[in-house]
């Protein structure tokens, strides 16, 4: 009896109320080039999915298909159970979308633009004004509300796009590089906003800023050449990094050779790398064998042998290691496409 569900294909299981976006076998070909090659994903309420990948990996194309701007070559997307190809309007009503580059009508002011979006979304009169006011408050657009959008700075333009996307408080939010071009303060406030909205929504955010994934995403999906090459929590991804649990210590160069030999002789250590620093200091990084924890042993030895350590830290891992290991260089991809 209990195994019944396991035989039912994913598509018919959408009665799970928390699943908001279902992507099955999504494929897009532009002539001879396959931009998206069979992506399967489900995103549930409360998830912030970070979509990672090099430029041209298919992130934007996927988002364009999820929002109904492009029609898939094959496969399908359902948003709150509505097929984007056949029930486009119902799906689009549930989606807030910030397209790549945050396009907006430059001759309009943010106020006019947001009122236009509110009207298209079916809000009238007071309701429309209240929606616009809420979106403006959340994105801190007040100071520029009546200036033409084309005269605004990149940061404000991006936030106009964001305000437009969240105006109708959509259950599904899809944002293509929401913090691109923002300064650190603006990035922080946009991330705070995304985190605050996340419990009630399913959110997909594309980015190539790896620190953003660590900051806001509950799940990271890496795509390369149109395929999903990794899918897990940011911590899962970090575990794949060669820097995961690596220990770095900085010490005077006179002790470096002794320390290096000692570290290499430990069974938990796989390899040691050395970088020269300024002021006659040396940085040593010990990489652990898979699954080993080094920090306690290393610090005990450093104290016992009086290495005169200036810095000592363990790393959770580096996302750019993982990113580079999983994805391909754009020139390689272009060559393959041509071949």
């Amino acid at each position: 009896m209990f195994s019944l569900w396991a035989d039912v294909p994913l598509a018919t299981r959408s009665c799970d109320l928390n699943v908001m976006i279902e992507i099955e076998g999504l494929t897009k070909r532009f002539g001879p080039i396959t931009a998206v090659a069979g992506i399967d994903l489900t995103v549930s309420k409360g998830e912030v999915l970070g979509f990672l990948g090099p430029n041209g990996a298919g992130k934007s194309t996927t988002m364009k298909m999820v929002t109904g701007f492009l029609a898939p070559t094959s496969g399908r997307v359902r948003v709150l159970g509505h097929d984007v190809t056949t029930e486009t309007i119902a799906a689009q009503q549930a989606i807030g979308y910030l397209p790549e580059g945050a396009p907006a009508y430059g001759d309009m002011t943010p106020r006019q633009f947001l009122l236009f979006i509110a009207a298209v979304r079916g809000f009238r009169g007071h309701q429309a004004k209240a929606r616009v006011a809420a979106a403006v408050g959340n994105t801190e657009l007040d100071p520029v509300l009546d200036q033409p959008i084309e005269t605004l700075s990149k940061g404000f333009k991006r936030r106009v796009g964001l305000a437009q996307a969240i105006l109708h408080d959509p259950p599904v939010l899809i944002m293509d590089e929401p913090t691109d071009g923002l300064d650190p303060n603006q990035k922080h406030s946009v991330r705070t906003l995304i985190r605050a909205m996340s419990p009630e929504k399913a959110i997909i955010v594309s980015t190539h800023l790896l620190e953003e994934v660590a900051a806001i995403c509950s799940r990271a999906v890496v795509i390369d050449r149109g395929r999903v090459v990794a899918d897990g929590t940011p911590a899962d991804l970090l575990r794949r990094s060669r820097h995961h649990n690596a220990v770095t210590l900085v010490l005077p160069s006179s002790r470096a050779e002794t320390a290096r030999t000692k570290l290499k002789s430990m069974n938990k250590v796989a390899s040691v790398e050395q970088i020269a620093r300024q002021n006659d200091l040396i940085e040593l990084t010990a990489f652990p064998n898979p699954g080993a924890m080094l920090i306690e042993d290393v610090s005990a030895i450093a104290v016992a042998e009086k290495w005169d350590v200036r810095e000592l830290y363990a790393e959770a891992g580096r996302l750019d290691d993982v990113f580079r290991a999983l994805t391909t260089h754009d020139a390689t991809r272009a060559r393959e496409n041509r071949a």
Binding site: K64, G68, F69, Q92, Q93, P99, P103, A104, I117, R121
Partner: peptide
């Protein structure tokens, strides 16, 4: 803006 316009419901 085409992308914006065509993804509105």
């Amino acid at each position: 803006t085409m992308e914006l316009l065509l993804t509105l419901p």
